[in-house]
Simulated assay, not measured.
Amino acid sequence: MDLVWETAKGMDERAEPYVMVTVVRRVRPSSATVGDKAIVTADGKMIGFVGGHCTRELVINQAQECLRTGEKRLLLITPQPPAHVEEGVTVLSMTCASEGTVELFLEPKHVDPLLIIVGDSPIAHALEEMAPRFAFVPRRISLEEAENSSSEEPLEILRNQLAAFDNTTAYGVVATMGLYDSEGLLALTHWKLRYLGLVTSPKRWSTVRSGLEMAGAPKEFIDFITAPAGLDIGAVGAPEIALSILAQIVERRRRDLNVQWEGQPESERKIPKPEALPENGDRATVSQIAVDPVCGMTVNLEKTQFRFELDGTTYGFCCSGCRERFAKNPEAFLSHL
Protein backbone atom coordinates (compact mmCIF):
# COMPACT_ATOMS: atom_id res chain seq x y z
CA MET A 1 0.00 0.00 0.00
CA ASP A 2 2.92 2.34 0.72
CA LEU A 3 4.09 1.94 -2.88
CA VAL A 4 0.65 2.99 -4.14
CA TRP A 5 0.62 6.16 -2.05
CA GLU A 6 4.22 7.00 -2.95
CA THR A 7 3.46 6.53 -6.64
CA ALA A 8 0.32 8.64 -6.38
CA LYS A 9 2.22 11.42 -4.60
CA GLY A 10 4.85 11.54 -7.32
CA MET A 11 2.29 11.56 -10.12
CA ASP A 12 0.31 14.27 -8.35
CA GLU A 13 3.41 16.43 -8.13
CA ARG A 14 4.01 15.97 -11.86
CA ALA A 15 0.28 16.29 -12.67
CA GLU A 16 0.44 12.99 -14.57
CA PRO A 17 -2.89 11.30 -15.31
CA TYR A 18 -3.75 8.02 -13.59
CA VAL A 19 -6.73 6.16 -12.14
CA MET A 20 -7.01 5.30 -8.44
CA VAL A 21 -8.85 1.98 -8.06
CA THR A 22 -10.39 1.07 -4.69
CA VAL A 23 -12.14 -2.13 -3.67
CA VAL A 24 -15.47 -1.18 -2.07
CA ARG A 25 -17.06 -4.66 -1.83
CA ARG A 26 -16.02 -8.27 -2.26
CA VAL A 27 -17.62 -11.71 -2.08
CA ARG A 28 -15.53 -14.80 -1.37
CA PRO A 29 -13.48 -16.38 -2.80
CA SER A 30 -12.25 -13.11 -4.30
CA SER A 31 -8.66 -12.53 -3.22
CA ALA A 32 -9.15 -8.78 -2.79
CA THR A 33 -10.25 -7.14 0.44
CA VAL A 34 -12.29 -4.01 1.01
CA GLY A 35 -10.00 -0.99 0.97
CA ASP A 36 -7.35 -2.48 -1.29
CA LYS A 37 -6.03 0.08 -3.78
CA ALA A 38 -4.15 0.17 -7.04
CA ILE A 39 -3.06 2.78 -9.56
CA VAL A 40 -3.47 2.33 -13.30
CA THR A 41 -1.23 4.60 -15.38
CA ALA A 42 -1.95 6.04 -18.82
CA ASP A 43 0.28 3.41 -20.45
CA GLY A 44 -1.66 0.55 -18.84
CA LYS A 45 0.58 -0.36 -15.89
CA MET A 46 -1.02 -1.40 -12.60
CA ILE A 47 0.68 -0.65 -9.28
CA GLY A 48 -0.97 -2.24 -6.26
CA PHE A 49 -3.47 -5.07 -5.81
CA VAL A 50 -7.25 -5.11 -6.26
CA GLY A 51 -7.74 -8.72 -7.31
CA GLY A 52 -6.07 -11.60 -9.08
CA HIS A 53 -5.25 -12.26 -12.71
CA CYS A 54 -8.92 -12.76 -13.56
CA THR A 55 -9.76 -9.14 -12.86
CA ARG A 56 -6.50 -7.40 -13.73
CA GLU A 57 -7.00 -6.87 -17.48
CA LEU A 58 -10.67 -5.98 -16.99
CA VAL A 59 -9.75 -3.27 -14.49
CA ILE A 60 -6.94 -1.88 -16.65
CA ASN A 61 -9.22 -1.64 -19.70
CA GLN A 62 -11.93 0.12 -17.71
CA ALA A 63 -9.39 2.48 -16.13
CA GLN A 64 -8.05 3.53 -19.50
CA GLU A 65 -11.61 4.25 -20.61
CA CYS A 66 -11.96 6.48 -17.53
CA LEU A 67 -8.83 8.36 -18.57
CA ARG A 68 -10.29 8.84 -22.03
CA THR A 69 -13.61 10.20 -20.83
CA GLY A 70 -12.51 11.80 -17.56
CA GLU A 71 -15.46 10.18 -15.75
CA LYS A 72 -15.50 8.19 -12.51
CA ARG A 73 -16.86 4.65 -12.64
CA LEU A 74 -18.31 2.02 -10.31
CA LEU A 75 -17.31 -1.39 -11.64
CA LEU A 76 -18.85 -4.74 -10.67
CA ILE A 77 -17.02 -7.91 -11.75
CA THR A 78 -19.02 -11.06 -11.02
CA PRO A 79 -19.58 -14.59 -12.43
CA GLN A 80 -23.35 -14.04 -12.21
CA PRO A 81 -24.34 -10.63 -13.62
CA PRO A 82 -27.60 -9.41 -12.06
CA ALA A 83 -30.76 -9.24 -14.16
CA HIS A 84 -31.24 -5.63 -13.14
CA VAL A 85 -28.22 -3.32 -13.26
CA GLU A 86 -28.43 -0.19 -11.18
CA GLU A 87 -27.83 3.13 -12.88
CA GLY A 88 -24.19 4.19 -12.81
CA VAL A 89 -22.77 0.69 -12.42
CA THR A 90 -20.70 -1.05 -15.10
CA VAL A 91 -21.05 -4.84 -14.88
CA LEU A 92 -18.52 -7.28 -16.37
CA SER A 93 -18.46 -11.07 -16.23
CA MET A 94 -15.66 -12.80 -14.34
CA THR A 95 -13.44 -14.33 -17.01
CA CYS A 96 -12.15 -17.35 -15.07
CA ALA A 97 -13.51 -20.12 -12.91
CA SER A 98 -13.42 -18.13 -9.70
CA GLU A 99 -16.81 -17.64 -8.07
CA GLY A 100 -15.77 -14.45 -6.34
CA THR A 101 -17.28 -11.02 -6.88
CA VAL A 102 -15.54 -7.69 -6.52
CA GLU A 103 -16.88 -4.15 -6.78
CA LEU A 104 -14.45 -1.32 -7.43
CA PHE A 105 -14.50 2.46 -7.59
CA LEU A 106 -12.38 3.96 -10.38
CA GLU A 107 -11.42 7.62 -9.98
CA PRO A 108 -9.36 9.33 -12.73
CA LYS A 109 -6.86 11.98 -11.64
CA HIS A 110 -5.32 14.86 -13.60
CA VAL A 111 -7.39 14.20 -16.69
CA ASP A 112 -8.49 17.73 -17.50
CA PRO A 113 -7.45 18.07 -21.16
CA LEU A 114 -5.17 20.75 -22.49
CA LEU A 115 -6.64 23.70 -24.36
CA ILE A 116 -3.86 25.00 -26.58
CA ILE A 117 -4.44 28.63 -27.49
CA VAL A 118 -2.38 30.30 -30.20
CA GLY A 119 -2.29 34.09 -30.18
CA ASP A 120 -1.97 37.22 -28.08
CA SER A 121 -5.36 38.73 -28.95
CA PRO A 122 -8.10 39.73 -26.48
CA ILE A 123 -10.01 36.58 -27.45
CA ALA A 124 -6.94 34.41 -26.77
CA HIS A 125 -6.53 35.93 -23.32
CA ALA A 126 -10.25 35.54 -22.58
CA LEU A 127 -10.05 31.84 -23.51
CA GLU A 128 -7.02 31.39 -21.25
CA GLU A 129 -8.85 32.99 -18.33
CA MET A 130 -12.13 31.13 -18.76
CA ALA A 131 -10.88 27.63 -19.69
CA PRO A 132 -10.31 26.33 -16.12
CA ARG A 133 -13.96 26.98 -15.28
CA PHE A 134 -14.85 24.34 -17.87
CA ALA A 135 -12.25 21.77 -16.72
CA PHE A 136 -9.61 22.59 -19.32
CA VAL A 137 -5.95 23.33 -18.66
CA PRO A 138 -5.03 26.35 -20.81
CA ARG A 139 -1.65 26.56 -22.49
CA ARG A 140 -1.17 29.68 -24.60
CA ILE A 141 1.63 30.36 -27.10
CA SER A 142 2.29 33.34 -29.34
CA LEU A 143 4.89 34.98 -31.51
CA GLU A 144 4.44 38.25 -29.63
CA GLU A 145 5.70 36.78 -26.36
CA ALA A 146 8.47 34.59 -27.78
CA GLU A 147 11.97 35.16 -26.42
CA ASN A 148 15.28 35.05 -28.31
CA SER A 149 13.51 34.22 -31.55
CA SER A 150 14.86 36.80 -34.01
CA SER A 151 16.70 34.18 -36.07
CA GLU A 152 13.91 31.60 -36.14
CA GLU A 153 11.00 31.24 -38.52
CA PRO A 154 7.51 31.84 -37.03
CA LEU A 155 6.43 28.22 -37.50
CA GLU A 156 9.57 26.97 -35.75
CA ILE A 157 9.04 29.41 -32.86
CA LEU A 158 5.53 28.09 -32.28
CA ARG A 159 6.61 24.46 -32.51
CA ASN A 160 9.37 25.09 -29.97
CA GLN A 161 6.84 26.61 -27.59
CA LEU A 162 4.56 23.59 -28.03
CA ALA A 163 7.46 21.25 -27.27
CA ALA A 164 7.28 22.36 -23.63
CA PHE A 165 3.88 20.66 -23.25
CA ASP A 166 3.08 16.95 -23.00
CA ASN A 167 1.89 15.79 -26.41
CA THR A 168 -1.35 14.32 -25.18
CA THR A 169 -4.85 14.55 -26.60
CA ALA A 170 -5.83 18.20 -26.55
CA TYR A 171 -8.17 20.84 -27.90
CA GLY A 172 -6.85 23.77 -29.89
CA VAL A 173 -7.89 27.30 -30.85
CA VAL A 174 -5.96 29.66 -33.11
CA ALA A 175 -6.89 33.24 -32.22
CA THR A 176 -4.15 35.37 -33.78
CA MET A 177 -6.76 37.65 -35.38
CA GLY A 178 -5.25 37.08 -38.82
CA LEU A 179 -1.64 37.83 -37.91
CA TYR A 180 -0.23 34.30 -38.28
CA ASP A 181 -3.24 32.01 -38.67
CA SER A 182 -1.52 29.62 -41.09
CA GLU A 183 1.57 29.16 -38.94
CA GLY A 184 -0.59 28.66 -35.85
CA LEU A 185 -2.57 25.90 -37.56
CA LEU A 186 0.45 24.23 -39.15
CA ALA A 187 2.23 24.11 -35.79
CA LEU A 188 -0.54 21.84 -34.48
CA THR A 189 -0.49 19.25 -37.28
CA HIS A 190 1.48 16.74 -35.17
CA TRP A 191 -0.80 16.99 -32.12
CA LYS A 192 -3.64 14.65 -31.28
CA LEU A 193 -6.60 17.00 -31.30
CA ARG A 194 -10.26 16.49 -30.49
CA TYR A 195 -11.06 19.98 -31.74
CA LEU A 196 -9.25 22.71 -33.65
CA GLY A 197 -10.96 26.03 -34.18
CA LEU A 198 -9.84 29.15 -36.02
CA VAL A 199 -11.15 32.57 -35.03
CA THR A 200 -11.84 34.08 -38.42
CA SER A 201 -14.55 35.09 -40.87
CA PRO A 202 -15.93 32.73 -43.54
CA LYS A 203 -14.35 34.87 -46.27
CA ARG A 204 -10.92 34.86 -44.67
CA TRP A 205 -11.13 31.12 -43.93
CA SER A 206 -11.38 30.51 -47.67
CA THR A 207 -8.05 32.30 -48.14
CA VAL A 208 -6.38 30.53 -45.22
CA ARG A 209 -7.66 27.15 -46.42
CA SER A 210 -6.14 27.72 -49.86
CA GLY A 211 -2.86 28.65 -48.23
CA LEU A 212 -2.84 25.47 -46.14
CA GLU A 213 -3.54 23.35 -49.22
CA MET A 214 -0.67 24.94 -51.15
CA ALA A 215 1.61 24.50 -48.13
CA GLY A 216 1.01 20.74 -48.26
CA ALA A 217 -1.14 20.32 -45.14
CA PRO A 218 -3.09 17.01 -45.19
CA LYS A 219 -6.65 17.32 -46.48
CA GLU A 220 -7.95 15.43 -43.44
CA PHE A 221 -6.32 17.99 -41.17
CA ILE A 222 -7.80 20.94 -43.08
CA ASP A 223 -11.26 19.35 -43.05
CA PHE A 224 -10.94 18.81 -39.29
CA ILE A 225 -10.57 22.55 -38.62
CA THR A 226 -13.70 24.37 -37.43
CA ALA A 227 -13.80 27.84 -38.97
CA PRO A 228 -15.17 30.18 -37.90
CA ALA A 229 -14.77 28.80 -34.37
CA GLY A 230 -17.64 29.05 -31.89
CA LEU A 231 -21.40 28.61 -31.74
CA ASP A 232 -23.54 31.33 -33.28
CA ILE A 233 -24.90 33.01 -30.15
CA GLY A 234 -24.66 36.55 -31.43
CA ALA A 235 -21.49 37.11 -29.40
CA VAL A 236 -20.11 40.63 -29.12
CA GLY A 237 -16.66 41.34 -27.67
CA ALA A 238 -13.82 39.05 -26.65
CA PRO A 239 -15.41 37.44 -23.54
CA GLU A 240 -18.62 36.46 -25.34
CA ILE A 241 -16.71 35.17 -28.38
CA ALA A 242 -14.52 33.10 -26.06
CA LEU A 243 -17.66 31.77 -24.36
CA SER A 244 -19.13 30.74 -27.72
CA ILE A 245 -15.92 28.85 -28.56
CA LEU A 246 -15.79 27.09 -25.19
CA ALA A 247 -19.46 26.13 -25.58
CA GLN A 248 -18.63 24.51 -28.92
CA ILE A 249 -15.66 22.69 -27.41
CA VAL A 250 -17.76 21.39 -24.51
CA GLU A 251 -20.40 20.21 -26.98
CA ARG A 252 -17.72 18.38 -28.98
CA ARG A 253 -16.23 16.88 -25.82
CA ARG A 254 -19.57 15.49 -24.63
CA ARG A 255 -21.11 14.57 -27.96
CA ASP A 256 -18.42 12.74 -29.88
CA LEU A 257 -15.29 11.63 -28.03
CA ASN A 258 -14.24 9.30 -30.85
CA VAL A 259 -13.54 12.00 -33.46
CA GLN A 260 -10.03 13.35 -33.35
CA TRP A 261 -7.10 14.29 -35.53
CA GLU A 262 -4.40 11.75 -34.75
CA GLY A 263 -1.46 13.84 -35.92
CA GLN A 264 1.33 12.70 -38.20
CA PRO A 265 4.87 11.47 -37.65
CA GLU A 266 7.46 14.10 -38.53
CA SER A 267 8.71 11.99 -41.45
CA GLU A 268 5.26 11.95 -43.11
CA ARG A 269 4.58 15.69 -43.01
CA LYS A 270 4.81 17.68 -46.22
CA ILE A 271 4.77 21.15 -44.73
CA PRO A 272 7.42 23.54 -46.00
CA LYS A 273 8.93 26.46 -44.16
CA PRO A 274 6.67 29.47 -43.58
CA GLU A 275 8.24 31.48 -46.40
CA ALA A 276 6.80 28.97 -48.86
CA LEU A 277 3.24 30.06 -48.07
CA PRO A 278 1.42 31.40 -51.15
CA GLU A 279 1.21 35.04 -52.06
CA ASN A 280 -2.48 35.19 -51.21
CA GLY A 281 -1.83 33.74 -47.72
CA ASP A 282 -1.02 35.31 -44.38
CA ARG A 283 2.50 36.48 -45.23
CA ALA A 284 1.29 39.05 -47.78
CA THR A 285 -1.33 40.63 -45.54
CA VAL A 286 0.21 40.46 -42.08
CA SER A 287 1.59 44.00 -42.17
CA GLN A 288 -1.87 45.42 -42.94
CA ILE A 289 -3.80 43.41 -40.37
CA ALA A 290 -4.54 45.09 -37.04
CA VAL A 291 -6.79 44.55 -34.05
CA ASP A 292 -9.48 47.10 -33.22
CA PRO A 293 -8.31 48.26 -29.75
CA VAL A 294 -11.91 48.88 -28.68
CA CYS A 295 -13.75 45.65 -29.57
CA GLY A 296 -10.91 43.25 -30.48
CA MET A 297 -12.09 42.63 -34.04
CA THR A 298 -9.59 42.14 -36.89
CA VAL A 299 -9.40 44.97 -39.41
CA ASN A 300 -7.36 45.59 -42.55
CA LEU A 301 -5.64 48.97 -42.28
CA GLU A 302 -5.56 49.27 -46.05
CA LYS A 303 -9.29 48.75 -46.51
CA THR A 304 -10.97 50.18 -43.43
CA GLN A 305 -12.15 53.78 -43.62
CA PHE A 306 -12.09 54.08 -39.83
CA ARG A 307 -8.52 54.99 -38.80
CA PHE A 308 -6.95 57.14 -36.13
CA GLU A 309 -3.39 58.51 -36.00
CA LEU A 310 -1.71 58.84 -32.60
CA ASP A 311 1.97 59.46 -31.91
CA GLY A 312 2.97 58.17 -35.32
CA THR A 313 0.90 54.96 -35.07
CA THR A 314 -2.18 54.23 -37.18
CA TYR A 315 -5.01 52.38 -35.40
CA GLY A 316 -7.79 50.69 -37.36
CA PHE A 317 -11.42 50.22 -36.33
CA CYS A 318 -14.36 48.15 -37.47
CA CYS A 319 -16.85 51.01 -37.34
CA SER A 320 -17.24 54.71 -36.60
CA GLY A 321 -18.54 53.98 -33.09
CA CYS A 322 -15.30 52.23 -32.03
CA ARG A 323 -13.23 55.01 -33.57
CA GLU A 324 -15.16 57.68 -31.69
CA ARG A 325 -14.83 55.87 -28.37
CA PHE A 326 -11.10 55.51 -28.91
CA ALA A 327 -10.66 59.16 -29.91
CA LYS A 328 -12.30 60.36 -26.70
CA ASN A 329 -9.95 58.41 -24.42
CA PRO A 330 -7.13 56.51 -26.20
CA GLU A 331 -5.24 55.72 -22.99
CA ALA A 332 -8.17 53.74 -21.61
CA PHE A 333 -7.94 51.27 -24.51
CA LEU A 334 -4.18 51.28 -25.12
CA SER A 335 -3.52 50.26 -21.54
CA HIS A 336 -5.19 46.88 -22.26
CA LEU A 337 -3.21 46.11 -25.41
Rank of each mutant, 00 (worst) to 15 (best):
K303W: 06
G316C: 05
M11E: 05
V23L: 11
P154A: 14
I249C: 09
T78P: 02
C322F: 10
A146T: 00
D36F: 07
L127G: 01
R14A: 14
L277D: 09
G316V: 01
D181T: 00
A235Y: 10
R56Q: 14
L337M: 03
E213R: 11
Q80V: 09
K9E: 09
Q80D: 10
K270L: 15
E240W: 08
M94D: 00
V199A: 12
D223E: 13
V4Q: 11
E262F: 05
R133G: 13
W205R: 05
F105R: 13
A97D: 03
L127M: 04
T207E: 08
C318Q: 04
V199Q: 12
L162Q: 11
L127E: 05
N160W: 02
G316R: 01
L246G: 03
V89Q: 01
A15L: 12
E144W: 05
E262M: 14
D282C: 11
D120K: 06
F317A: 13
V174S: 02
R194D: 05
I141W: 02
A164L: 07
I77D: 13
V102G: 15
V34L: 13
S210Q: 14
E71S: 07
M214W: 03
G216W: 06
Q64W: 01
T7C: 10
R14K: 15
T78Q: 09
A175D: 03
A15G: 03
E86R: 07
E144L: 07
T95E: 06
E65V: 14
K37V: 04
D256W: 08
I249N: 09
S150Y: 06
A235W: 08
D282M: 11
T78W: 08
G70V: 01
A227E: 06
I241Q: 12
A32W: 05
L179C: 10
Y171Q: 06
L104K: 05
E156C: 02
S98L: 11
G178E: 13
V118A: 12
V118E: 04
I117C: 01
F224C: 15
K37M: 10
A175W: 04
S150D: 07
K303L: 15
M11T: 01
P154L: 12
F49M: 13
S267G: 10
E128T: 10
G178Y: 10
R140V: 04
C54R: 05
L162E: 09
T90H: 01
V89I: 07
D43S: 06
M214V: 00
L162A: 09
A170M: 03
G172K: 00
L115I: 05
S150Q: 08
T176Y: 10
E128S: 14
Q288R: 14
V250A: 08
E279M: 09
S201R: 11
P218E: 12
H190G: 08
Y171H: 09
I245E: 10
M177W: 03
D256A: 14
L277G: 14
A135F: 03
P228N: 15
P82A: 15
S149A: 13
N280Q: 13
M46A: 02
V50T: 09
P265I: 13
D166P: 15
